[in-house]
Design a protein around this nucleic acid. Structure first.
Length: 474
RNA sequence: GCGAUUGUGGUGUAGCCUGGUAUCACAGUGGCUUCCCAAGCCACUAACCCGGGUCCAAAUCCCGGCAAUCGCACCA
């Protein structure tokens, strides 16, 4: 299934490896014409859903000065001292070499590590030779000068907290979102969109009063697999999971539930989704608790959303580093807000959506994605390449575009072939002008999912209500 | 990053062992047919990952690079 998607994606213009005429570049992918539309629709679904909860948004730079990541802990935690055995070429984290050699010292920087290696005979855990080659491996991309490409969009929001909070007139809870690029110099990028070096993130930072970790009330929604780090796996609603004490706060549970809801709207069904809590040693340095939403592709689970309790970790660090106050007051109580962060990996969501939505009918691909996220909503065809049919079809195409831009026109090949083309890219409806159209001004509207058609009057087609009822089901 | 395997038009492939004109299908373009679920016919477009070596001659053999797949490691 995964291979089928990668093939389809390249052939039909969803996504493909970047820079291929120069031999390619591991960890980088381009979105093609249909991928751009699909990605934008996914992001829009995310954005509009959070706007319902009063979210505000930010767009901050990719290139970020070093002090930001010094404060956030990324400089320390996203870079590792590494060691290579020059004899057997094995590579290790420096700390694991120290542990193997029963050394308790923890070097603060590269200089100290090099000193340890020259003062002490450190044996290679694999071949036993002396290890001398110590270097810094940084997961963050450094650009010239003391600047880095951000490994997450979140810090842009934290460093803007005061301005954003002022904009929000000092009110908590405050929800801030940012859709943008993140960069990580992955050691081994794999599986196309799963592990990229430059990736699309939609991050949400929810700022809350730590004494009142509540948000809107929980509601009943579909059951889903819930896998806390105690080892059990339950099939219950998120609301039930909270009521059983599996999720630490009401607000955290709300955003888990919201994530389930957003993913459903994007087209990832709850039956192919689970929430898994991180083990304590698996968490990011900034998180006191984390749950991943994982999507199923080919019987394998992949993280597509990470929801972390970042507490006041980031604001606190930026307050100490910058000297700017990040506190607020409720009555006499002064505090730094707590943060819950649902972070959506858009590339992985897009891949999961496509993999989970691809079906075959009579040996032909049908991409059954929700209508509103489909790259095109409608395709318009003349039954045949005849002037009178073409003229009518072009009229419909031009006039429907006044209501909905996500429309494509096609007259090449047989009618069956054109239906198949659209099925494969998920277009919900095909509108065909035939001979009857010339007589009574009706066209056929053919559904992607059932292949059945209905006759509709052209004037009905050109009404906004038609799009609302057919695509948005309003 | 290590190891194994692989790299041929837009896609999927044959050819590679045994060096000599690169196969087929799909897709695409133009035309014929005049058409409701990938019909047919004709014509066309279009590829040996990159670099080096061996050889009269390299898609084919050898070396290096890049990339992909899988396993290990990594994934904060």
């Amino acid at each position: 299934m995964y291979d089928d998607i990668v093939e389809l994606a390249k052939r039909r213009g969803f996504f493909w490896p970047s820079f291929s005429i120069y031999g390619g570049f591991a960890g980088f992918y381009d979105y093609g014409p249909l991928g751009v539309l699909l990605k934008d629709n996914i992001i829009r679904t995310w954005k509009e859903s959070y706007m319902e909860d009063g979210a505000i948004f930010l767009d901050s730079p990719n290139i970020t000065p070093e002090p930001v990541f010094r404060a956030s802990g990324h400089l320390a935690r996203f870079s590792d001292l590494a060691a290579e055995c020059e004899k057997c070429k094995s590579k290790f984290k420096f700390e694991s070499v120290l542990a193997f050699n029963k050394q308790d010292i923890i070097p603060a920087n590269l200089e100290e590590a090099k000193k340890i290696a020259s003062d002490t005979y450190l044996k290679c855990p694999v071949c036993g030779s002396r290890i001398t080659n110590i270097y810094d491996f940084n997961l963050m991309y450094k650009v010239s000068g003391d600047y880095y490409l951000r490994p997450e969009t979140a810090q842009g929001i934290f460093v803007n907290f005061k301005l954003l909070f002022n904009y929000n007139r000092g009110k908590l809870p405050m929800i801030v979102g940012q859709a943008g690029k993140g960069f990580r110099n992955e050691i081994s990028p794999r599986q196309s969109l799963i592990r990229l070096r430059e990736f699309n993130q939609c991050e949400i930072e929810v700022f809350l009063d730590p004494e009142n970790l509540e948000f809107k009330s929980l509601y009943d929604y579909k059951k889903i697999k819930i896998k806390p780090n105690t080892g059990e796996e339950l099939d219950i609603t998120v609301k039930e999971a909270f009521e059983r004490g599996l999720i630490s706060s009401q607000a955290f549970a709300y955003f888990v539930l919201k994530t389930q809801n957003i993913l459903e709207n994007i087209g990832i069904e709850s039956s192919k989704l689970r929430f898994r809590q991180h083990d304590p040693d698996e968490r990011a340095h900034y998180a006191s608790d984390s749950w991943d939403a994982e999507g199923l592709i080919d019987n394998e689970w992949f993280e597509i959303v990470g929801i972390a309790n970042r507490t006041d970790f980031d604001l606190n660090n930026h307050q100490s580093s910058s000297g700017e106050t990040m506190t607020t007051k409720i009555e006499e109580r002064e505090f730094i807000p707590y943060v819950i962060e649902p972070s959506y990996g858009i590339d992985r969501i897009l891949l999961t959506l496509m993999a989970q939505s691809l079906e075959t009918r009579d040996g032909k691909n049908v991409l059954k994605i929700p209508y509103p996220v489909a790259p095109y909503h409608f395709a318009v065809f003349p039954l045949m390449k005849k002037e009178n049919l073409k003229e009518k079809a072009e009229y419909i195409y031009e006039n429907m575009k006044k209501q909905d831009k996500y429309i494509v026109y096609d007259e090449a090949g047989t009618i069956g072939k054109r239906y198949a083309r659209q099925d494969e890219i998920g277009t919900p409806y095909c509108i065909t002008v035939d001979y009857q159209t010339l007589e009574d001004n009706t066209v056929t509207v053919r559904s992607r999912d059932t292949a059945e058609q209905k006759r509709i009057k052209i004037e009905e087609l050109l009404d906004l209500d038609f799009i609302n009822s057919y695509i948005y089901k309003k």
